[in-house]
């Protein structure tokens, strides 16, 4: 019977939003986050927004919409989290794992013969997370990508040809 209710609760939210840097896995994160808003308040870029009621059980938790404002990995939010939902010891941007970017090769400009280096040049893990194959085609290195979403923001294609998927969406 409880599993039925649990299913109902999960049914409210279909998508799993992108969490701020240092976030625990989604299930653990939801248990820990007390919705105190501090991470969103210290974010100098206003990247972190709080999910509202339309996000169901994620209501009040911090999330990032990278196409709007991506995370610039300034690492100011993990230390202020009082519960460790954002792991306080994450200090370097290389340790962050918010999600992984995926390139849609059907809309990505270099795959259609137009030179574009927007994501490659703006990646904070420069020349490691996004590399250029044959000096032309961008490729995401999954192990190095931190999922900040800057590439998704700067992509000139309408609707973005490179999209960051959160950890949950990758594993499902």
């Amino acid at each position: 019977m409880f599993s039925f209710f649990r299913y109902l609760l999960q049914g409210f939210s279909t998508k799993s939003p992108l969490r701020p840097p240092g976030a625990l896995p989604e299930k653990e994160f939801l248990k820990r986050c007390i919705k105190c808003n501090k991470c969103a308040q210290v974010c100098p870029y206003y990247s972190i927004r709080m999910a509202h009621a339309e996000w169901g059980r994620s209501m009040g938790t911090p999330m990032i919409n990278p196409r709007d404002i991506p995370c610039y990995v300034c690492m100011k939010c993990p230390p202020v989290c009082p519960t460790g939902a954002l792991q306080n010891n994450v200090e370097k941007k290389e340790e962050v794992k918010m999600g992984i970017a995926k390139i849609n090769t059907e809309t990505c400009l270099p795959f259609m013969g137009i030179i574009c280096r927007a994501c490659y040049e703006n990646c904070p893990i420069f020349r490691e997370a996004i590399i250029l194959e044959d000096e032309l085609l961008p490729k995401v290195i999954a192990e190095k990508c931190i999922g900040c979403g800057i590439c998704e923001r700067v992509c000139p294609v309408e609707g973005s040809a490179i999209i960051v998927y959160s950890q949950e969406e990758i594993t499902v």
């Binding site: 409880f2 209710f5 649990r6 609760l9 299930k27 939801l30 248990k31 986050c33 007390i34 919705k35 105190c36 808003n37 969103a40 308040q41 206003y46 927004r49 709080m50 999910a51 509202h52 009621a53 339309e54 059980r57 209501m59 009040g60």
Partner: peptide, 30 residues
């Protein structure tokens, strides 16, 4: 449920965070 029910029933918390959202331009939820 392994799920924070109390947070959603804490009306002072919801009101205060909504005030903050409103002023910081994050919009207000339902």
């Amino acid at each position: 449920f392994g799920f924070p029910v109390i947070t959603f029933l804490s009306f002072p918390g919801i009101l205060s965070s909504e005030i903050s959202h409103l002023i910081m331009g994050m919009g207000v939820g339902i």
